[in-house]
Design a protein around this nucleic acid. Sequence first.
DNA 1: ATGATATCGATATAAAAATATCGATATATA
DNA 2: TATATATCGATATTTTTATATCGATATCAT
Lengths: 216, 216
Amino acid sequence: MSEKKPISLNMYNRLSTYLNFLKNLPPHAPCNISATTLAQELLLNDVVVRKDLACVSDGGKPKIGYIVADLVKDIEHFLGRDNLSDAVLVGAGNLGKALISYGNFENYGLKIIAAFDSDPSLVGREIAKTKILDVAKAANLCNRMNIKIGIITVPGVFAQEVCDMLVEGGVRAIWNFAPVTLKVPGRVIVQNEDMAASLAILLKQLDDSIAAYGLD
Amino acid sequence: MSEKKPISLNMYNRLSTYLNFLKNLPPHAPCNISATTLAQELLLNDVVVRKDLACVSDGGKPKIGYIVADLVKDIEHFLGRDNLSDAVLVGAGNLGKALISYGNFENYGLKIIAAFDSDPSLVGREIAKTKILDVAKAANLCNRMNIKIGIITVPGVFAQEVCDMLVEGGVRAIWNFAPVTLKVPGRVIVQNEDMAASLAILLKQLDDSIAAYGLD
DNA sequence: ATGATATCGATATAAAAATATCGATATATA
DNA sequence: TATATATCGATATTTTTATATCGATATCAT
């Protein structure tokens, strides 16, 4: 594995795509795969793929490509999926519930160990075996349990306040589903999951596409 | 409004952010705002903001900036939020359910008019007044009702097959929540909402941050 | 063995995005 | 009315990202 650090955000997206593809290869598929093939399958430029793979693995060989199993391990290691991180989630509404019950995040290196909400009618209940606790206890619990990751799924108006609580509790990375720009100290990471923006792109591109191709 | 088309994908993200911010300004806020101020509030470079705004509005005046109400309208118009688009959703599992019951997408220009699933125990039921229908009927219904947008929230293995059905039904834009690269004809838009990738970025950055700042 | 070929990895070029700089202009103030 | 200033919009520069090109190498076929 090379020690360089070109850090491209899109690269993580692509690596994640490679990983999904590799893990879902049919059982009888050959045990090796070339960057070129991968690129064709995923509709990407082959040089991009080769460059990405060079960052996470050095198992590539001419005429052979990469051994799938090794490559999977290398990508997973690079993405930090081989050590589970504990996280808490704040906001047990529809989206929060969905994320908790999704359950599949453990495959991606994340374990949601507790949820918080301010609604007394939710506090005390459970979603998919995850307890919903009073949001007032969030900071304290994060501190005690050394939680470094917080997921925010509250309405926008409360997001900053929740964020502050988490930061106070020692959280160092925030996955923010609220459509708000969070203000955090420099050492804290914020990853925004802005579905509204994503939707905007979709709608705009649809417009353009219909203008170009017509409605058929 | 300028007629140029620099089309930057990040720009849509930012425009969406501006819009959220502007719409949530306190009631007693001044009725005008400068690109510079906006940039400071949203932790962005001021030139980027000015460039983005120039694409959607020409209401900017020196010493004044933009009239908030007009700017909101201009951005909404640019993002296509002033005409609702109908959409269908396939996959009424946890995530699908959450998206349907979220309900707020109508504010963003999207209306989910029907959901589909293959699970007979779900078909016929309702989620937030949205009927769940047999997935076999999807293509037909899209055709008849002239639906152009499909949302895919099925497990990865079924995503391509669902996608093909939607395309057959005349769908022209797909919002894909499955971690799979979909193959579609050129005229069809795909917008991937890859939460796993987003999560990967978060975890990686957290690693880096802890390496840089320590655990405190 | 020997040569042909697929594939990698590195370097070089091109394209795109972000950022900086600077003159123009509308408003406020003296 | 004249001057100072905030802010815009355009142009220029830098940085980043994507793409193309090319030599090196390991395997396969002859």
